[in-house]
Design a protein around this nucleic acid. Structure first.
Length: 428
RNA sequence: GGAGAGAUGGCUGAGUGGUCGAAAGCGCUCCCCUGCUAAGGGAGUAAGGGCUUAUACCCCUUCGAGGGUUCGAAUCCCUCUCUCUCCGCCA
């Protein structure tokens, strides 16, 4: 949520910033200001009425204590209650309407976010590694996995439908090895606290991280009296650890990491990446989260992105980092770097990590604060997150980049300790 | 699933209809005292919002959540949620 104070004091500036997002940034500034005018009038009126009622009631109490006749006092406040109730109802409605608007507005963009409508306008920041030269025609992961007999989409679809995969044998182990390696790297070298967190959360947690109310269709939801949502990313669970907390300053920056499955309904992505494991309803991901003091989030974004890059560097996977343009950047982010890994089978760079600075946008929704040691006052923290990285996509990248002419897959050096002596994944 | 107990400020914990946003303690901040340290004395210390140039004053809200009774609710009534203990079941 954008700071409501900013929203009403610098409405046109906010509108201008949001407009950079194109389709996602619609904001009826005039309508908002009108509504805000009504809110102000109603709130002032309501609070004045409440003040009157409170004072009167106290006088009743005093009079009663002194044994005076309270009947005239009671008569004086008789119709106050009704007026107050009516005012409160109006105010509540206007506030709800305002909040609805506020919850639907995306975060303000940082100035250095490039202009543009879609991913074609994303700006490449840097490249690492040499996009694979093969002495043979590289296969994609679908063919590789199928030939190995370790990747089965048919079996998955028979029980679960499309966008699921079954992996077995060396491939299943390779994914586990990747996840372990990533988690170890981040916890042992980058200072992240390994965390096991709920995979099912309630709506308010998702409102906090801003998947709700706007993006409900992307989520899986359970039935029952209190519905649960399956987390689309561990970002939700990790960030909500700070929900409704006033953290001590010396606990920041807080670096949190978790390996979890992620569940996405992929509504609206019909026809995109229907083949293979790129876009699944369920996938494993190591997520990195940082909770920092305001003012430190810009540096933290660079750092966190670097942490994700280390994983790809150790795996010797070529990648590039792009800064997402205004039209492509996520709802909660003020700035996002995507890390795209080279996939020889597609001859393309594909997203494997997305690292975002969400400033105080989510913290405001979650009421996640820190006590500023200088002022003694609570202030909103800044939240950041990034994949470190998506295990399913890392598996694809390893398969395609480490494939050999005979269709076997070499195990990357850094994964050997996790593979129980297996250095090549080959068909039986 | 059954029975019982509970939910109050950063923490512990008192408070059963009216100057209670809330005793006391801990913690924290500042001051005093004392060679240092320890101990001691004093003062201050909830959050959110409104108004506002203002982090000043003033006002409103909040004692798990939501309803209700009342001129007035932390306190009474109803519903819900969560936590703890015991039993049952279970990985």
């Amino acid at each position: 949520m954008i700071d409501p104070k900013l929203l009403r004091q610098a409405t046109q500036d906010v509108a201008k910033n949001l407009a950079r997002r194109g389709a996602g940034g619609e904001f009826d500034a005039d309508g908002y200001l009108q509504l805000e005018e009504r809110r102000k009038a109603l709130q002032v009126e309501t609070e004045a009425l409440r003040n009157e009622r409170n004072t009167s009631s106290k006088n009743v109490g005093k009079a009663k204590a002194q044994g005076e006749d309270i009947e005239p006092l009671l008569a004086a406040v008789k119709d106050l209650g009704q007026k107050l109730a009516a005012a409160e109802e109006f105010l509540k409605a206007v506030q709800a309407e305002l909040q609805g608007i506020e919850l639907g507005l995306p975060n303000l963009l940082m100035d250095d976010v490039p202009d543009g409508d879609d991913e074609s306008a994303n700006a490449e920041v840097r490249r690492w590694g040499e996009a694979g030269k093969f002495e043979f025609e590289p296969r994609d992961h679908i063919e590789l996995g199928g030939n190995l007999g370790m990747l089965d989409f048919d079996a998955a679809s028979r029980m679960s439908g499309s966008r699921f995969a079954v992996m077995q044998g060396g491939l299943a182990r390779l994914q586990r090895a990747l996840a372990q390696f990533m988690l170890d790297t981040h916890t042992q070298e980058h200072g992240y606290l390994e965390s096991y967190v709920p995979y099912l959360v309630q709506a308010h947690a998702l409102v906090g991280t801003s998947q709700l109310p706007k993006f409900e269709e992307d989520l899986f939801k359970t039935t029952g009296e209190t519905p649960f949502y399956l987390i689309p990313t561990a970002e939700v669970s990790l960030k909500n650890l700070a929900r409704e907390q006033i953290l001590e300053a010396d606990t920041l920056p807080m670096r949190l990491a978790a390996l979890t499955p992620c569940f996405r309904s992929e509504a609206g992505s019909y026809g995109q990446d229907t083949r293979g494991m790129i876009r699944q309803h369920q996938f494993e991901k190591v997520e990195l989260v940082q909770l920092v003091m305001a003012g430190q989030s810009e540096a933290a974004l660079e750092e966190l992105t670097g942490h994700a890059e280390v994983v790809l560097q150790r795996l010797e996977l070529p990648y590039r980092v792009v800064s997402l343009c205004a039209g492509d950047i996520g709802f909660a982010a003020t700035k996002t770097y995507d890390i795209e890994v080279w996939l020889p089978g597609q001859q393309k760079y594909r997203e494997i990590s997305s690292c975002s600075n969400c400033t105080d946008f989510q913290a405001r929704r979650m009421k996640a604060r820190v006590r500023n040691p200088d002022t003694g006052k609570p202030e909103l923290i800044h939240t950041l997150n990034g994949s470190g990285v998506a295990a399913g996509r890392a598996l694809i990248a390893v398969m395609e980049n480490y494939q050999q002419a005979d269709g076997s897959i070499r195990v990357p050096e850094v994964l050997l300790p996790y593979m129980g002596g297996m250095d090549v994944i080959a068909a039986d």
